[in-house]
Write a protein that binds this DNA or RNA. Structure first.
Lengths: 187, 187
DNA sequence: GAACCACTAGGACAATTGTCCTAGTGGTTC
DNA sequence: GAACCACTAGGACAATTGTCCTAGTGGTTC
């Protein structure tokens, strides 16, 4: 049992690395260890697998967020934890880009219904970041949350293109300082 | 005559909108108006078309740059012209993302040799931006050029995901002001 | 041990893909 | 008008793709 979950977990990884449209069932079959035609016992279509992959990503994102919340009560620290994904997942991002950004773009280009799912993922982080800025008593928390997303998307693309680790480290540090400067609480 | 160039021009557009891997010859044939098998009179492989598409993009980018240089002698103005692509091509970016960033990411995921071509495109803008910052007597012109690229990549992804024109306008304005603040010349 | 179950392999299918090949056509050059 | 040219349509090909189907297998439940 759990085969279905295995498939989704492996598909999540492969779709990230190769793109959804560039990942045929042959690859999935090889990685999961079942035959190609057999996927249809578990899923109705390839799009159904994608839908569950997005659900899995949402769950994983929620538990990442829960982890950051558990690790610090300070909203600025929490936002920095988000920013530091750029370092924690550096090698993956260098090779395949940001999972959110590249997925959203692929869905948009394909005019795929799951474009909405990609946006949900962004919304999840955006909402949470905005909440942290609110807790910092910052003006325009939603705008600032957009700024953080924008930064991490840009940095991920630079990382993917140039693989310049010094630059990324500097930017992560700079952005974390910027976040702290948004704190308007009496401290 | 010129048929070859027609094909490359149409392929450039389609590859941008749909992605290279998701654009079959059927689509190309429909758009160009010749039969599918007939492409092989003009090109040896699909990859050969891509190579010429990249060359075309490089040429187009160079003439955009030449246009900005002709329009203003002030380096800050010139950099702002680059940043304002986000507004000039807003609708395209909302629908398909940044041509540079999305292309680079697709090539990286496919581990396609043309990853190098994608990077050449980035290098072209990076080099030119760095030159503008040098002309402004700014410290660390190459770093600042990276910052501009990073910003426009992030903003393009936000535009592609959220299509929030107010946000993009504000960010373009903010970034242009930031550019001007890097000016260290005696004025 | 019969009935059921979740799961499997792998053949088959039509559609699509990149590519190759043949047989043209229509204009220019001598 | 013969020779050449750039270009064309479209059939054919093998490989690949997503999907469907059939015939199982191996374990659990009564």
């Amino acid at each position: 049992m759990g085969k279905r979950q295995d498939i989704v977990a492996i598909a999540e990884d492969l779709f990230y690395r190769q793109g959804f449209g560039q990942t045929p069932f042959t690859d999935l079959a090889g990685a999961v260890g079942i035959s190609r035609g057999n996927f249809y016992h578990h899923f109705k279509t390839k799009d159904d697998i994608l839908a569950e992959v997005v659900t899995l990503r949402l769950e994983k994102s929620r538990s990442m967020i829960a982890g950051w919340e558990a690790q610090s009560a300070d909203p600025a620290d929490r936002i920095c934890a988000y920013i530091r994904i750029l370092l924690a997942n550096q090698e993956l991002i260098e090779n395949f880009g940001c999972p959110l950004g590249s997925f959203a773009n692929e869905m948009a280009k394909a005019q795929h219904p799951m474009t909405a799912g990609a946006r949900q993922l962004f919304d999840l982080f955006h909402g949470w970041l905005a909440q942290q800025f609110t807790d910092m008593a910052a003006a325009r928390p939603e705008y600032l949350a957009m700024r953080v997303l924008q930064f991490s998307q840009g940095a991920a693309t630079m990382s993917n293109t140039y693989r310049d680790r010094n630059f990324i480290s500097e930017e992560v540090a700079r952005m974390c300082e910027w976040v702290r400067r948004q704190d308007r609480r009496e401290e």
